[in-house]
């Protein structure tokens, strides 16, 4: 009995070591597409991946949610099966990232624009609906605001202090942290858009673009803007518990929670499917994914995945991605994207 115990011990050890080091080689073969990138595109990419896996003979792609920046970093790390084939992005690839890709041998990247995502500012149904303008969003959330011709640390505590027509609630906004693509877009569209409408800041922009950007992109850190993590469901729950607070998140979460949340009007427009599609609702951005051309034909199914993603039944006006909350491209634009994608036209450096 005891002898057996000892011999089992030794055999267990060898087995473990064999597992650890002996099996390192099969890493090279891969028959499954690997997708990384934006957490905003994640719900859409996974829906496509699942359909693709079910309706074709290929294996279902593995989709990781790493954030846009993290995804492109992995994507641009090189050509080879240990690197991902596709990267999702909630903004366009930056020039520095393309250069990074080039430096690592990723020379041909195919860009596909899949649609729009609206960023909504919402609160609980139990409170009044907010009617905001972009400059009010800026005044409520910026670190420094102009008061009487001078820049001062944000003095506004309540919404009413900004404009008397706004509710008499304390300014309390739950939003994404700086690592999030949603935050980038919110800052660029809503905050910068708002700052441009303030004459003093517009004058600064004409003089010194860099200083203007730094000012427009700085969100206050005195507790009025609360970073709520990347989990949008968490924000939804916090809004439900606190009717006086606002939350910033993607349109698909408002779409799913229409019974308990209401989107604030921005510039007189509700964040509805129609208003975002037509571009009348100001805070919306394009979503993309990028394909490594060098992997086409090496990893099976990439072209078919591309075909599924760009098909009308997925990305189209009434496709299943629209059901998931994606704001689709206009039909001619969709066709152009599809043709360019299927021809594998590589991105040229801007």
């Amino acid at each position: 009995m005891n002898r057996r115990c000892a011999s089992e011990f030794v055999s267990g050890l060898t087995l473990a070591l064999a597992l650890g080091f002996g099996l390192a080689s099969p890493a090279l073969a891969r028959d499954q597409i690997r997708v990384v990138g934006s957490s905003t595109v994640f719900p859409f990419a996974t829906a496509v991946a699942e359909r693709f896996g079910r309706s074709t003979a290929f294996r279902t792609p593995v989709v990781e949610s790493t954030g846009t920046g993290g995804g492109l970093k992995l994507f641009c790390a090189g050509v080879g099966l240990q690197h991902p084939d596709v990267s999702n992005a909630s903004r366009r690839i930056k020039k520095s990232e393309v250069e990074q890709c080039f430096a690592n041998g990723v020379r041909e990247i195919v860009e596909v624009r899949i649609g729009y995502d609206g960023i909504v500012i919402a609160n609980s149904k139990r409170a009044r609906r907010f009617e905001l303008h972009e400059e009010q969003i800026f005044l409520a959330l910026a670190k420094q605001v102009p008061v009487a011709g001078k820049l001062v640390p944000n003095p506004y505590r309540r919404w009413r202090d900004i404009v008397p027509t706004l509710p008499d609630f304390e300014i309390e906004v739950f939003g994404p942290p700086p690592t999030s693509g949603t935050r980038d877009a919110f800052v660029e569209l809503a905050m910068e858009g708002g700052a441009k409408k303030i004459p003093l800041l517009e004058a600064l922009r004409a003089r010194d673009k860099r200083a203007f950007k730094a000012l427009a992109h700085a969100i206050r850190e005195d507790g009025a803007y609360i970073e709520a993590g990347e989990n949008d469901n968490l924000i939804v729950q916090k809004l439900e518990a606190n009717p006086a607070a606002l939350g910033v998140f993607g349109f698909s979460f408002l779409d799913q929670n229409g019974d308990r949340l209401q989107g604030s009007l921005v510039g007189g427009r509700t964040p509805s499917f129609e208003n975002i599609t037509s571009g009348e609702y100001g805070i919306s951005r394009s979503l993309y994914f990028y394909i490594k051309k060098a992997h086409v034909g090496v990893v099976p199914g990439i072209v078919e995945y591309l075909r599924e993603f760009t098909s009308a039944r997925a990305m189209g006006e009434v496709g299943y991605l629209a059901d998931k909350g994606l704001i689709p491209l206009p039909a001619p634009e969709l066709r152009a994207q599809r043709d360019a994608a299927l021809a594998l036209t590589p991105l040229s450096l801007p």
Partner: peptide, 26 residues
């Protein structure tokens, strides 16, 4: 990660139970 196929061995992509909780919560 979002993984649909049931992993057939320790070398196939897989998630884990708490990861599934995390992904669904999001």
């Amino acid at each position: 990660a979002f993984i649909v196929d049931i992993p057939g061995g320790p070398l196939e992509p897989a998630s884990a139970l708490p990861v599934q909780v995390f992904l669904w919560a999001d």
